[in-house]
Design a protein around this nucleic acid. Structure first.
Length: 705
DNA sequence: TCATTTAACGTTTTT
DNA sequence: CGTTAAATGA
């Protein structure tokens, strides 16, 4: 097998340099994943490295899955067979594996559960309740942010309290401490803990560190510009004396600094690993010239960046189109109608389009318009599948069975379905349980012989206890799917969701998807890990639908036609950066750059004269990024969209199509032909392949010959 | 204890 | 504007 086949010179170097540190600076669309996959294949096929001695870290689970599949194809192996695959996954999932295996070395329970952002916030709420904090200014979401930030800086509650000077901060410290206490009691780790405890494990347990250091002969890290301090530590701890580390990234595409990502990690790589080979991938295989040039014009305004010269062998292609509209409803309709027309004339499939926006809230208007226009669409992000109520409920049951100290999960399902357990009874029970040191399921079984709670609550809780006890016996012997089936029938959950309401069908379907998801797992912890770490962006894409997602979720993807909506000051760039630092504005600029470089052939940007935000009508000026794009753009606007704009000599949707009967034209789809009729926008063309088509000249990118 | 009504709140991005 | 949490009454 020749793993160098189809690679350019720079890519081939990146594959061939197999010893020592390697930094690959990969511009947008430069074949980064391809290079990485070929490199791994090369190591396995030609360098006699065992797959499991390779650690490949990706930014999302989806990226890992994709890479597995590509590698499988390259090596002619079944990509789903994990045993013949390198360790591939996110830093988080890798840490889970390390902690499950060796966590006891630093006193981490083997069956810990993972708390996501929602879990964390409700636990914070509980912590506040227990501490009797009544301050309305203390919002769980805000506290969650502070705690997360502190954890990323490796500041524990003691240190936080020591540096707290204001009463507010002292209160935060108290809540932080209580949160940690309760989380510990529940044998749970939150997202930040996974990384932090991963660092602690490798740092404080020398034999564990030694084991993994010698185990991983090669470490590859994708999206290195988005690594944070803890992830950086993990890398440093895992690298052995051979220094076979390969990182790939692009500082121009660093868009996660708000999450602690530090793109100076990539800028400092050569200092960190002396003697590193640096390879720049600068040929862009994705976008046509005009798109690339406009994007370059935007990113060049940033001062904090490396220098790179992206180029393409493709022609200039169509110019970037900027559309002015009146409001968000017209914007959504404009996007929808353009897509529908493209598809109607068979120039494109729905799957060729993506609509990108800055905030999830913007998807609402799009969805309504698309439903009305009957355009099939697929929403990436927003509510994760695993965030749906019924899914979380079932997961909570499973988590409780797996880790009977998980109070959070118990509180969630104690009265779901309704079994007469109110807030007061629940509290009484939990107090009694923690006093006696039973785990929750044992405590439930014992409740019958006590007077802690009475009446309905008592019978409800002990019945639940008996059911859970029975289910617990199945944990070891059943597959996750069987367990879910048992849970929903034995607890009455199935009847509970089938209440005859209009949503019942949806819920049942969701449980069905959960079941089929679970089929692929053989043991419970693996399944629970998947449920916790699966991100909203990880949903697999459907080829026949328009993709709707945030700019962040679009990173790493590409589409023939991309729409970016809301190109206004206050949206892109987001209003929040106006009072923040210049560095934050630079991140917005990178975000716009990431969005623009997703487009292969067509890029449409739109802005609205007026927009409904927070239920209030706002009027935002045109985004500064559009003015930065230079002359690779053409402006059009609807009659309504022109309102409020100063200059009025821009053309409206033009009736001029510049085509007459007898003209020769070239269509990207149908080839060369001759115009035989023109009626306004509709042009009838006799193509040389014998076909006669009536096309809309506005959308069917026709080139006059 | 539970269902219905009312108030408040939110919108940056996510592992 | 739309959703969710708190407050009220049955």
């Amino acid at each position: 097998m020749n793993v160098l086949e189809g690679l350019n010179e720079a890519q081939a170097t990146a594959v061939n340099v197999v010893k020592g540190p390697l930094l690959i600076l990969a511009g947008a669309g430069s074949g980064k994943t391809k290079t990485l996959t070929h490199r791994i294949a090369h190591l396995i096929a030609n360098e006699a490295i065992w797959p499991n001695q390779i650690l490949a870290v990706t930014f999302t689970n989806k990226a890992a899955k994709e890479m597995r599949e590509r590698l499988g194809r390259l090596l002619d192996q079944d990509g789903s067979r994990r045993d013949f695959m390198p360790w591939m996954g996110t830093f988080h999932s890798m840490c889970v594996r390390l902690l499950r295996q060796d966590g006891q070395a630093i006193n981490i329970s083997r069956n810990f559960v993972i708390y996501d952002e929602d879990d964390r916030q409700s636990l914070i709420k509980q912590a506040m309740k227990q501490l009797g904090v009544v301050d309305r200014e203390m919002k769980p979401s805000q506290l969650s942010g502070i705690i997360s930030h502190s954890k990323n800086q490796m500041i524990d509650p003691d240190e936080f309290e020591a540096s707290a000077s204001y009463p507010y901060q002292k209160n935060v410290a108290k809540i932080y401490r209580q949160y940690e206490q309760m989380r510990n009691d529940a044998k749970a780790l939150d997202f930040d803990d996974l990384l932090l405890e991963g660092v602690r494990l490798l740092r404080d347990a020398p034999d564990v560190r030694a084991k993994w250091r010698s185990h991983f002969k090669h470490i590859l890290i994708d999206e290195y510009q988005d690594t944070n301090a803890a992830q950086y530590q993990i890398v440093k701890l895992l690298i052995n004396e051979d220094q076979n580390i390969c990182v790939v990234g692009d500082d121009w595409q660093s868009i996660y600094s708000w999450r602690g990502a530090d793109f100076t990690n990539i800028l400092n790589f050569e200092k960190d690993f002396p003697g590193a080979v640096v390879v720049k991938l600068e040929q862009n295989y994705r976008s046509s010239g005009n798109i690339l040039a406009a994007a370059a014009n935007v990113i060049e305004k940033n001062t904090q960046r490396t220098d790179k010269q992206l180029w393409t062998a493709k022609g200039p292609g169509s110019p970037v189109q900027v559309h002015g509209v009146y409001d968000e409803a017209e914007e959504a309709r404009m996007v929808g109608e353009r897509i529908a027309t493209h598809v109607q004339i068979k120039a494109r499939n729905y799957g060729d389009f993506a609509v990108l926006y800055r905030t999830n809230a913007q998807s609402y208007t799009l969805e309504r318009a698309f439903l009305q226009l009957r355009i099939p669409y697929q929403l990436v992000g927003g509510i994760r599948f695993y965030d749906r109520k019924e899914i979380k409920d079932v997961i909570a049951y499973l988590r409780l069975l797996y880790q009977p100290n998980d109070r959070m999960s118990f509180t969630r399902i104690a009265n779901v379905p309704v079994r007469g357990v109110g807030a007061t009874s629940l509290e009484k029970f939990l107090n009694w349980q923690s006093e006696h040191g039973f785990d929750i399921i044992t405590a439930l079984v014992h409740i019958e012989n006590t007077q802690v709670v009475t009446g309905k609550a008592k019978s409800g809780l002990s019945a639940l206890g008996r059911t859970l006890k029975l289910l617990q016996l199945k944990v070891e012997t059943s597959t996750p799917a069987e367990l879910i089936e048992a849970v929903i029938t034995m607890t009455g959950y199935k009847d509970y969701i089938l209440d005859g309401s209009p949503q019942a069908e949806d819920r049942e379907a969701n449980i069905g998807s959960l079941l089929s998801d679970a089929q692929t797992f053989t043991d419970l912890p693996d399944f629970l890990e998947e449920a916790a770490l699966m991100s909203s962006a990880d949903t697999s894409s459907d080829g026949q639908k328009v993709t709707l997602m945030t700019l962040h979720a679009a990173k790493g993807l590409e589409f023939p036609v991309v729409f970016i909506i809301g190109m206004e000051e206050g949206i892109i760039p987001h209003a929040r950066v106006f009072e923040a630092s210049p560095a934050d504005l630079e991140e917005e600029r990178r975000l716009a750059y990431v969005g623009m470089t997703r487009a292969r052939e067509e890029l449409h940007l739109s802005y609205a004269y007026s927009r409904l935000q927070f239920g209030q009508r706002t009027y935002n000026p045109l985004s500064r990024f559009i003015s930065d794009m230079g002359d690779q753009i053409t402006l059009t606007h609807s009659q309504l969209g022109i309102m409020g704009q100063k200059q009025t000599d821009e053309p409206f949707y033009s009736d001029e199509i510049g085509l007459e009967v007898g003209d020769g034209v070239r269509s990207a789809v149908f080839g060369i032909g001759e115009v035989i009729d023109v009626e306004g926008m509709a042009v009838t063309i006799n193509f040389s392949n014998g076909q006669t088509k009536k096309l809309n000249a506005e959308y069917a990118h026709l080139e006059k010959l």
